[in-house]
Design a protein around this nucleic acid. Structure first.
Lengths: 237, 237
DNA sequence: TTTACAAAGTGAACGGCGTTAGCAAAGCAT
DNA sequence: ATGCTTTGCTAACGCCGTTCACTTTGTAAA
């Protein structure tokens, strides 16, 4: 099945890695709109049309970058999670949440690319590798959440309290044995974390709080209370 | 103080309105990156350099657009608020929240422009009219929230439960007589609403919920519970 | 080892972009 | 009628993504 990579294949992979690297730096320094094939080629000592041997368009390059970023934040969250004992699920939930925020705050351009407004011209199709990378990302928080509920269930709202359209939708989430009420709590928790991080990264929080971490930690503490793990909340470090 | 507008001044204002109108349409149809001076000029029957008599750069035009959008969503929220009796504060809070979501869902491009990732090249300075428009926008939800607390206070977390850095920061918010705990609840509520709307508009919610309104209404209902107005929650329409 | 083929990269060109500079016409006030 | 300001134009510069035709280079088959 797997053919040993020829010399040319290795060279090609190296070039691809080089291109992504330079593109990533341009993303960081000039924003997603500042990624330019000509500038990348210039920095690599080649010409812009040559890049079309590696990507069919600028959009596809940006898409590859999106997949990369998803994989990066996913890996960081998994790393922080795996540094804690598998049975300490409260700590693991706090860890993946904090890892998400840390990566996002330290990579605002990348965060905007994958979690911000999809640029109409730029790609974001429901099929393909972006969706898969996004699914793998979402799995990390979800898995820890489900494990937490299995080992120490919390009290969730009764399904009657949910919008009548919600339960059917929520049950499509691959959430083990969680009921609609618990699935809503899961989504609501993630919405809160996403909201806090997005507002901080996008600079929408400065009117209220300069130090994003202070708000985020308070949110985590309140979330812990909601998940019946208030006693297990610990400040970071 | 106010000089009657001369004929030329009127013409100028009309041209400015025209430009913004066309630019807005381009924003809607092609995204913020698709706004082009040349295309605007083409549609207006003039040439691109002529536009520089009205805006010093494309960035400034986009900035003007941002201010416009802020004013628009603000006005819509105020309109929905004022359609309800001043003493019915729970209904007013629900109304401004729903108005925020409705405007955002129906104007995704505009939402991305004002609430999404700031494009590095594009403007978003802390001074100037953008900040003012943003402040006026935030005031709407905040005013209703403060009024609600004054007339029917809810129980907020004790300041000890907040991150130690938070109270000092929160007390800078012009929030009447609210204490740190109540101010945190205010910010947390807004973060939840913002998070739910941003995820819906940015398409980050589809893995969980197709119908954004269902989640949003459930959030509103849970928020109502938190604000001791659970009995006053009513589904929309 | 020669030959055929595929891959990688180039230069030229097209149309689009924001922006600047210099210039002509029109409007306004004196 | 004279000056000045405002408005808009053309031309140009340097970017950009993308396509096309071409050369060079590496690989594999004969």
């Amino acid at each position: 099945m797997s053919i040993p990579p020829s010399r040319r294949d290795r060279l090609r992979e190296e070039t691809v890695a080089h291109i992504q690297e330079v593109a990533r730096r341009q993303l960081v320094e000039h924003g997603s709109a500042g990624i330019s094939l000509r500038a990348i080629a210039r920095e690599l000592g080649m010409t812009a049309p040559g890049l079309y041997r590696y990507y069919p368009s600028l959009d596809e390059l940006v898409t590859a970058l999106i997949v990369d970023c998803y994989a990066e934040v996913t890996a960081q969250m998994e790393r922080e999670r795996d540094a804690l004992p598998p049975e300490d699920l409260p700590s693991r939930l706090l860890a993946v949440s904090r890892a998400f925020r840390h990566w996002s705050v330290e990579h605002p351009a990348e965060f905007g690319l994958i979690f911000g407004a999809p640029v109409p011209g730029f790609a974001r199709p429901p099929e393909g590798p972006v969706e898969e990378a996004g699914a793998r990302f979402g799995q990390v928080f979800r898995d820890v959440f489900v494990q937490l509920w299995l080992h120490r269930p919390f009290t969730a709202p009764h399904p009657d309290e949910l919008d009548p359209r919600l339960p059917a939708e929520l049950l499509r989430i691959p959430g083990g044995s969680l009921g609609p009420g618990e699935l809503y709590v899961f989504v609501a928790c993630w919405v809160r974390l996403y909201g806090a991080v997005a507002m901080e990264v996008f600079g929408q929080l400065k009117w209220a709080v300069e130090e994003g971490e202070a708000l985020f930690e308070t949110e985590l503490r309140q979330l812990s209370r909601m998940l019946a793990m208030a006693d297990e909340y610990r400040p970071p470090r």
